[in-house]
């Protein structure tokens, strides 16, 4: 019975353009968050559980800025400036949190940053209604274009385009960064901090830099997200989001950028698809959160190093091709 339900659902997805656009946008946002967290947890060898806090800071920063300045300048300019403002606020928060906390190692850093993420959420929830909206959140004025029933589709397509352009730029920038002297210093600190210090690398500075860059990028993801949603509420930035981001990094393979994007797609797709199931799906619909959590646990048990490990997708393809051609050659001889 359930299988029959599932079959019809698979067909239902087809014509649902809005749903797909929304999915793709969310994939792009989580890919940004995953890519930036990868810089901390994948490359810099630190362990942060507070990334959702910077995402929230970015979203609220952009929302606040847009409310202040909407109408005083051309819409797209407000959009761009609000993104920059959000990044700036996230960067400063990253610096303020990073300086004291990054002396901590391993799990202690994880718990300190987790505490930070919770503080941010509580602070927003208890904020003044006129400033950050308290528990009700903020409505973000539409500045890029008017969004109504007719133009909603166009808006989503536009935002998906913008978001994916940022994802590509972000991946490219991060890749270039880790292949520079600063990036190598970061890897060195991650692999042996003591040796790095004794060979002239300032470990604290390297870590703080990685942390601040990652926070800034999470802030950017928050700003884009706020403009797309049209409102921000504190509940959207709970610890569950942190779990998702971290899973994306781990499933994508720590330190793999393309794996990160693929993992973002898989995870968000499964989540959205399970949530979207119609009531006929019965068990599958009602229990979707249980199933989602169950899939996570199974993935961690069976693929603890991520879907592809720490390699980029291109490496995987290359090694598969090599294996394939070697197999063929083996048969010939």
């Amino acid at each position: 019975m359930a299988a029959g339900g599932l079959l019809t659902l698979a067909i239902d997805l087809g014509p649902d353009g809005f749903w797909w656009m929304n999915l793709l946008f969310l994939v792009a946002i989580y890919a940004m968050l995953g890519l930036s967290l990868n810089l901390i947890n994948g490359y810099a060898g630190m362990f942060s559980l507070g990334h959702h806090g910077f995402w929230a800071i970015g979203a609220y920063g952009a929302a606040w800025f847009t409310i202040q300045f909407a109408g005083t300048m051309p819409g797209p300019l407000v959009f761009i400036l609000s993104c920059l403002f959000a990044m700036g606020v996230a960067a400063i928060s990253g610096l303020l949190i990073g300086l004291p906390c990054l002396r901590l190692r391993g799990d202690y850093l994880a718990i300190a940053t987790l505490g930070f993420g919770e503080i941010i959420r509580i602070a927003i929830q208890n904020s003044d209604k006129d400033v950050l909206g308290g528990s009700l959140g903020l409505a973000v004025p539409r500045v890029i274009m008017d969004v109504n029933r007719e133009s909603k589709g166009d808006f989503r397509v536009l935002m998906v385009g913008v978001a994916f352009a940022i994802v590509v730029l972000m991946a490219w920038g991060i890749r270039n960064y880790i292949r520079s002297a600063k990036g190598r210093a970061m890897l060195a600190v991650a692999q042996d901090e003591t040796a790095a210090g004794l060979l002239g690398i300032n470990p604290t500075r390297s870590k703080v830099t990685a942390f601040v860059i990652a926070s800034t990028l999470a802030g950017l993801a928050g700003a884009i997200y706020a403009h797309y949603q049209g409102n921000v509420t504190p509940l959207e930035f709970g610890f569950m989001e942190m779990v998702k981001i971290f899973l994306i990094v781990v499933l994508g393979g720590m330190g793999s950028l393309s794996g990160c994007v693929v993992a973002a797609f898989l995870l968000i797709f499964v989540e959205q698809w399970l949530a979207k199931l119609p009531p006929e799906a019965g068990f599958f619909k009602d229990w979707w959160q249980v199933e989602y959590a169950f899939i996570l646990v199974l993935l961690m048990i069976f693929r603890p190093r991520g879907i592809f490990g720490p390699r980029e997708i291109s490496d995987v393809v290359r090694s598969l091709r090599r294996k394939f051609s070697r197999g063929a050659a083996g048969e010939n001889s």
């Binding site: 362990f47 799990d107 779990v243 959590a293 961690m300 603890p304 190093r305």
Partner: peptide, 25 residues
């Protein structure tokens, strides 16, 4: 136990997953 050898981060995320699972069940 299945992830004990797979590194601490895998174990930690498994723990988070189990936590979510139990919560939702």
């Amino acid at each position: 136990r299945p992830v004990r050898k797979a590194g601490r981060i895998a174990a930690l995320l498994t723990a988070v997953g189990v936590s979510l699972l139990l919560q939702n069940v």
